[in-house]
Each structure stands twice: as structure tokens, then as C-alpha cells.
Measured scan of single mutants.
Amino acid sequence: SKTSNTIRVFLPNKQRTVVNVRNGMSLHDCLMKALKVRG
């Protein structure tokens, strides 16, 4: 089974995003990807 960790990230202006960290990806990469999608 694939394991994925879901991390809630609290952003300024009362924004919130959820990042799924996959195996083999660093938290930083996942964060940058999530913020790019939002931006």
C-alpha cells in the first residue's frame, strides 16, 4: 500500500492548504508544488 502523509500548512491571510507528501519527495518540493498550484 502506498503511504502518503498529509500535512496542513497554514499560510498568511488565514489561508490554509493541505500538502500530500509522497515517498521520494521532500517536504520542500511538495510545498513549492502546492504553492505554485495556489499561486
Rank of each mutant, 00 (worst) to 15 (best):
P12T: 03
S26C: 13
K36S: 14
K2M: 11
T3N: 07
I7F: 08
K36I: 11
T3S: 09
G39V: 04
H28S: 03
F10C: 06
V21F: 05
R38H: 00
N5H: 12
N20I: 13
V37E: 01
L31Q: 00
T6A: 08
P12S: 01
K33N: 03
S4N: 12
L11R: 01
R38Y: 05
N5D: 09
P12A: 02
M25T: 13
L35M: 11
V9L: 02
K14N: 15
L35A: 05
D29Y: 13
F10I: 02
G24D: 07
H28Y: 10
C30Y: 03
R8P: 02
G24A: 11
I7V: 11
K14S: 05
G39S: 13
K14W: 05
V18L: 04
P12R: 01
N23S: 11
K2E: 09
L11P: 00
V21L: 09
N23Y: 12
T17I: 01
D29H: 14
S26T: 15
L11Q: 00
M32T: 12
C30G: 08
C30S: 11
V9K: 05
H28D: 11
K33M: 05
F10T: 05
N5I: 07
R22S: 07
H28N: 07
S4C: 11
S1T: 13
N23C: 15
V18T: 14
M32V: 11
G39A: 10
V9G: 01
R22D: 03
Q15L: 02
L31M: 06
K14T: 07
L35Q: 01
V9E: 00
L35P: 00
I7N: 00
S26G: 09
V19T: 11
F10V: 02
K14Q: 06
N13D: 10
V18A: 09
S1A: 05
V19E: 05
V37A: 08
N13G: 03
K2Q: 15
L11M: 08
K36D: 05
N5V: 07
R16G: 06
T6R: 08
R22N: 15
H28C: 14
L27R: 00
S26I: 15
R38P: 02
C30F: 04
F10L: 06
T6L: 07
D29E: 06
H28Q: 14
F10Y: 08
T6M: 11
V19A: 10
M25V: 12
S26D: 02
R8S: 06
R38G: 00
R8C: 07
S1C: 12
P12L: 01
N13C: 15
N13T: 15
V21M: 05
S4I: 08
V9M: 02
K33T: 02
V18I: 13
S26R: 08
Q15P: 01
K36T: 08
N13Y: 08
A34G: 08
S26N: 10
G39C: 10
R16P: 00
I7D: 05
G24Y: 05
H28R: 12
N5Y: 08
T3P: 14
L27P: 00
F10P: 05
K33L: 05
K33I: 01
L31V: 07
S1N: 14
T6S: 10
N20Y: 13
V18D: 01
A34P: 07
S4G: 10
P12Q: 02
S1G: 12
R8L: 11
A34S: 10
R22F: 03
